[in-house]
Write a protein that binds this DNA or RNA. Structure first.
Lengths: 198, 198
DNA sequence: ATGGTGATGGTACTGAGTCACATGACCAGG
DNA sequence: CCTGGTCATGTGACTCAGTACCATCACCAT
């Protein structure tokens, strides 16, 4: 199978998490990460476009998953259910062990503006993918936009509370409840909380 | 008044836009921008934290403006009207001449992923500020989140169509119509497009 | 004039990211 | 065996972003 030590990307991720946690993101050089993973600087940049990207590997799958989720929803599903299928699809990407990883990653991300910027960019990419897919399906760009925003917000809120909480249900369950909450917010919007136009 | 040539920041912005348009973002070095503005590299980085930030100067005012907008809305305003006040406040930041600048800026931003990342980060910062302010006022974090997303979406959609279109009404007007559209999307959400829970 | 203040210039440094080329591991076929 | 091909990795040199420290120079108040 593998010629040298296998899973270079995984080793680099592990090394990066270790070092970022210990010394901080800025104080850790690419060379140190590579060495800690038994590689060289050059090889690191052959695997990742930049230093931040080490922590965000696999995010592309989320984007693809969002699009596929929308397309896989039953033909007669009402818009919000299409969204639910897509967001649930996002949740299946993370296996159980990603939970502890998520916790450590979250701490690191919170420590560096540079990493937060990349995180926001990834979130935006997911939102855009969801927006495009929903827009194609619903033929209403604005409704698709609102749904995409709500879906991604439910996912991220759910993820945050999932890695925070102690009891360990699956991520999909937490996110599903989050979606219900947002669904009820949308319902209440028209029954009093929005006044008629001026 | 000014001791040397005035408005270093403005000159740097102008130089950056010129050079980015001509040679592209990546192919333009900080030294070239500085020289083109009659300054040195050192001074450039004294004014801006990094090369991208040159193009985003003044965005902080948008964030502040969003917060103030929410706080300045009449006490009895329903949620969506509070949002409208805040988003309208955003629009007053841009004077008329920002329109042509906006066009040129938009072209440049579209050409570089690095710049898009920063742009998304700024958008996110505005959304977060709006979210916090609305959340404090409405005492409902989720509703505040949905409104913040919708408001920012309306603002950015409106801005995009404002710089694209040929007839020149004020930005605030375009964005206001955009808000109306999103408001009607929200209304329709509960009258058929969302099916009862499973 | 004279000294203080604040914006600027000069220079040297670290580290990210790129590139061209060399090496070494493994696999196929002779 | 051993030989050639392929692919991940290593080496070294380079550019440029961003930082730090110190020098300089314009203006202003006294």
């Amino acid at each position: 199978m593998a010629r040298w030590e296998p899973d270079a990307r995984g080793r680099l991720l592990h090394a990066a998490v270790e070092l970022f946690s210990a010394r901080g993101y800025d104080a850790t050089t690419a060379a140190q990460i590579a060495e800690h993973a038994g590689l060289t600087r050059t090889t690191l940049f052959r695997h990742f476009a930049d230093k931040r990207e080490i922590l965000f590997q696999g995010q592309d799958e989320l984007i693809a998953s969002a699009t596929e989720g929308v397309e896989s929803a039953p033909a007669d599903s009402p818009p919000f259910d299409v969204l639910r299928v897509a967001v649930t699809a996002l949740c299946t990407i993370h296996t159980a062990d990603r939970r502890e990883t998520g916790r450590r990653l979250d701490t690191i991300l919170a420590s560096s503006p540079e990493l937060q910027e990349r995180a926001v960019f990834k979130r935006s990419a997911i939102t855009d993918a969801l927006h495009r897919a929903l827009s194609a399906r619903l033929q209403d760009a604005r409704q698709a936009g609102v749904l995409a925003d709500v879906g991604v917000r439910a996912y991220y809120d759910g993820f945050a509370s999932w890695i925070t909480s102690t009891d360990d249900g699956p991520l999909a369950e937490v996110v599903d409840h989050e979606l219900d909450s947002y669904r009820s917010v949308l319902s209440r919007m028209t029954v009093g909380l929005i006044a008629p136009r001026r």
